[in-house]
Structures are given as C-alpha cells and as structure tokens.
Amino acid sequence: MSNSREIRLFWFKLAFVVTVLGLAHLLALSVVDGKTSIGLAKVSGPRQSHMIIGTSRIAQAVMPSVLEKEIGAPFLNFAIDAATTSYSPTYNRAIEQKLDPHASNGKFILAMDPWCITGFYHPKNGTVMYPEKKTPLGQLQTFNWPLNIEYLIRDYHEGWGSIILTHLRDNSTVTGHRDGWVEVTRNTDEDFVQSRKEKKIAAKKKEIEHAFVSEEKKQALYSLIKKLKAHGKVYLVRLPVDPDYYLLEEEFYPGFQLFVDSLVRDYGVPFLSMQNMTSEVAYNDGHHINKKYAPLISERIAQWIQSTP
C-alpha cells in the first residue's frame, strides 16, 4: 500500500512520460510528407469532382498537374495498388466517400487492364480472397480530414519516429504527391530494368496460377461506371506496357478486348488503348511506366479527353 505522496509522485511521473511521448508524436505529425505514405494525400482533404481511378500502373503514370494544365480541372489520382484498388465494392465505397456528391460535370479516368478485374483464390484452401477488405483504405472510416490521421495509423507500420527519420533522409524512392500522383524513382540502367522485368513477369506468372477473371469485380465496375456517369463523364484508358507483358495479359484473358467493347457499347463510354505508344516510352519493370514518361502519357490522355465529344 502506497501513501498519498507516493501516489501523487507516480501520477506526476506518468503524466511527464505521456506528455513527452505525445509531443514527440506531434512533432512527427508536423513533418508528415509524401515520403511518409503514398496513399495519405489521396484520402486527406476535401471531396473531389475529377478523379483518376485504377491500380498502381495508373497511379504512377497519370499526373493530375499535367491534366489540369491541359483541361483546366483539378484531378485527384485515387489509385493505389492492385490489392487495394482493383475494382471491387470496397473500392467503390471509398470512391463514393471521396466524390463530391454535388459534382455534375466531373471527369473520371478509369484504368482498363485485365488485372483490374482479376480475383484470386487462396493458394491453400481454394476459397476466393478479398484482400482489399483488409487494406487501410478498405477499413477507413474518414476520407476528408485535412491530414488523415486514421489512415496514417492504419497504413504506417513503424514507430512514428521514423516519419522524422524519413523526412530528414533524402534517399526516398517513392513519393506520394498532394494530387495523388505516385512518383517512383528507379535506376534506369538497362540491365536493372531487364532483370526487374524478368522478375516481374515470373512473379506474375506464379500469381496467375491462382487467379481468375472475376465476375464480382466486373459487377463492381459496372456499378461504378453507372454511379460516376451520374456525376459527369467516364473515360476508359488502357495504359501501355512492355510487349512481353502485354502478351502475358492477352494469354491470361484473351477476351479482354471483347469485354471492353461491351462496356463501350452498353454504357456509352469512350475507350483509349495506348499500347501503340509502347515504343515511345520506357518502363521500370515492364509493367509500370518510368516517371520520365508520365507527363507524356498524361498529356496524350488530356488531349484525347479534350477531343472526345
């Protein structure tokens, strides 16, 4: 049993430690930037009227700043990666939370490739997996705080002290910009690129063993298009990839073009395939475009949007 002096001292010491820890965490919050988390900017700030939607390929390839210059509308790149933001009811929910409900003249660029509608079986027990439900975005409740602390807590898997360390270091290779564009800096040396491409293709081939074209994901895409059309215009874009990688996509889903054609027909949305640009650009790994060519890709898309009635 402790006397009251000891108890008071205990509370004083505890309060001291908690205060110091609290201040340290506030300091960390004050230096949060694009290097902290690529998704953070996408879920911070006000609701949006113009959005870029899809997976990591479009997250790295399409720059809202370039679109804004050409089209005059501020876009948000709301794509993260295949596990989180391939088409699904979960992603649709997030888009709806981020979309300005009063938007009527919005522009929405939707990525089109087989992986956006690919589902996976559990390699061991064969049941369909829903990885997006467990992602930070899938579980998020708030989408519009100026700085989304909830997302940071869910997405940042290190002590907050390393926010400060990352901020001070200048060797970050992945940066999430305020408009949602994900800037990835990779060594462009040909050997590196070639070996990364081989690894990527090998990994994808392994993944395909448990993959299938998902009817549920298609349904999610249909309802997303319907929903977005009520707020403006929807544009479908297939970004260029390395020819070897393209071959893999064709092998995996030979009927993909027919599927896109049916979307164009049934929903009256325009589609742009950019595969013919493949020799004009370079890739980090055959799959993601090198950041040098992101402005070019963005510009072409903007021009196409401008010229599409």
Binding site: V17, L21, A24, H157, E158, G159, W160, S162, L165
Partner: peptide
C-alpha cells in the same frame, strides 16, 4: 534507461 528504450521504440519499432 527509460529514455533509451522509449527512443528505440519511437524510432525503430515496426508493426508489420
């Protein structure tokens, strides 16, 4: 000791 351990946790902990 507290300061050292807490600093290590703050800067180098990880929650995969």
């Amino acid at each position: 000791t507290y300061a050292i351990v807490l600093c290590i946790i703050f800067f180098f902990s990880s929650y995969p």
